[in-house]
């Protein structure tokens, strides 16, 4: 009897193998996709993994030459700006009181340079792959910025590469403020145009003007304060809401970024631990 059942079962499987295999593979792919835990489970299937990282790196070393000229120009321009900020360029106008005590300043953020070797702006959820990884000191939750804006947040690291969730991602929210009056809001990307983002939760008593500058608020563990983000284009009150939502012209052209800085918050752990212990008490 069991043999008969076995034979029937095998016959059934043989007869419907196309549909059964479809169910099996389809379910596997859907389950894997829907678990959506980018942080742990995608370890194998990520461009941070060795082979694809190598392919992108090789391709990048070829295409990199094409943009050397404009890149150099931009870097020079930034050097000029930074050089102009150097302390030696200033004279001390206050002759009566001048104290300088190094122990007054505790370094909070450090920066590392890195290159983007894979980038997209045409999907709803975009990612950046960087050519540095754990061995260079990069870890998840560090920020990625360019000379004119926030590019993303590191979410996954391998030894030699790291992957960042781009600013152009549906799960990305950035705490920003108006540089003129420090009112804060939340910035997120709507998914259409990679040069435009939305800033929500602006109280209606704030006076808005076209061209108002938006910078990071510093109310996050990841990004320093006052990184330029963009300017206001227009605004309205969405139905059922009591806040303004504004369209922001991003300064950063996410399609051309190549050289980025990875920001590490040296005091982030301390701040987070304190905040968490306060909440749990």
């Amino acid at each position: 009897m069991p043999l008969q059942i076995m034979r029937n079962l095998l016959g059934f499987i043989k007869k419907h193998h196309f549909f059964l295999l479809f169910l099996l593979l389809g379910t596997a792919a859907m389950l894997f996709t829907m678990s959506r835990q980018y942080y742990q489970q995608t370890f194998l299937l990520h461009s941070a993994s060795r082979i694809s990282g190598l392919v992108y790196n090789t391709c990048n070393s070829v295409t990199g030459y094409l943009s050397l000229k404009p890149e150099n120009k931009e870097l020079l321009r930034e050097n000029v700006r930074l050089r102009a900020m150097h302390k030696e360029n200033f004279i001390i106008t206050d002759r009566y009181v001048f104290t300088m005590n190094d122990s007054l300043y505790q370094r909070r953020f450090t920066y590392m340079n890195a290159q983007i070797i894979n980038n997209s702006v045409n999907r709803r959820n975009n990612y950046l792959t960087l050519n540095k990884g754990r061995l260079h000191g990069i870890e998840p939750d560090m920020g990625v910025i360019t000379r004119n804006g926030v590019a993303g947040i590191i979410i996954n690291v391998s030894n030699h590469f790291s992957v960042a969730m781009s600013l152009l991602h549906s799960e990305m929210a950035l705490s920003v403020k108006f540089s003129k009056n420090d009112h804060i809001g939340s910035l997120h990307w709507g998914g259409t145009d990679y040069r435009t983002a939305h800033m929500s939760y602006i109280p209606t008593h704030v006076e808005l003007e076209v061209g108002d500058t938006i910078v990071t608020s510093g109310y996050s563990l990841i990004f320093p304060e006052n990184i330029l983000i963009g300017t206001i284009k227009d605004w309205d009150i969405r139905r059922g809401e009591t806040f303004y939502t504004a369209s922001i012209d991003l300064v950063m052209d996410a399609n051309t970024i190549r050289h980025v800085y990875v920001v590490e918050n040296l005091l982030g752990d301390e701040q987070e631990a304190l905040e968490l212990s306060t909440i749990s008490n």
């Binding site: 792919a29 959506r36 995608t42 461009s47 082979i51 392919v55 792959t129």
Partner: peptide, 15 residues
Amino acid sequence: VFSDSLAMHAAASTL
């Protein structure tokens, strides 16, 4: 693997 898209392309191709 090359597009950081979990198994979306696999699901789409299978269907």
